[in-house]
């Protein structure tokens, strides 16, 4: 039974991480990069749940860790979207290639 082995879940998590890395480098807009970050965070959550199910004696640890990751992802998405708005207002673009100057 493939759904009862730890390796299956870990391989799916690795796939999500790799897809997120690929998207980080390929997407041209800040929103696209945010989408890729969410994929990576999902992979991390899946990893914790898999270890929780197969290797941990206490079943609540991994679940709480995954809930924590979900909360962080929601907070991070809110901050990122508002930062993208602010960046757009200043630079009139959300192309990361154009946003290249610092000002003190």
């Amino acid at each position: 039974m493939i759904s009862y082995t730890l390796h299956t879940y870990l391989l799916i998590a690795v796939f999500l991480l790799a897809a997120g890395l690929y998207g980080m480098m390929q997407h041209r807009s800040l929103i696209g990069m945010l989408i890729s970050i969410e994929l990576i965070l999902n992979g991390a959550g899946l990893n914790f749940m898999a270890f929780n199910r197969f290797l941990a004696p206490d079943p609540t640890t991994g679940q709480i860790f995954t809930l924590f990751i979900m909360g962080l992802a929601a907070a991070e998405a809110a901050i990122a979207v508002s930062l993208i708005f602010a960046v757009y207002r200043k630079y009139k673009t959300s192309d990361p290639e154009q946003i290249s100057d610092l000002r003190g």
Binding site: A77, V81, F85, Y88
Partner: peptide
């Protein structure tokens, strides 16, 4: 939220 970011965020 991301959909709103795309649609509202010019």
């Amino acid at each position: 939220m991301i959909v709103f970011g795309i649609m509202v965020g010019y």
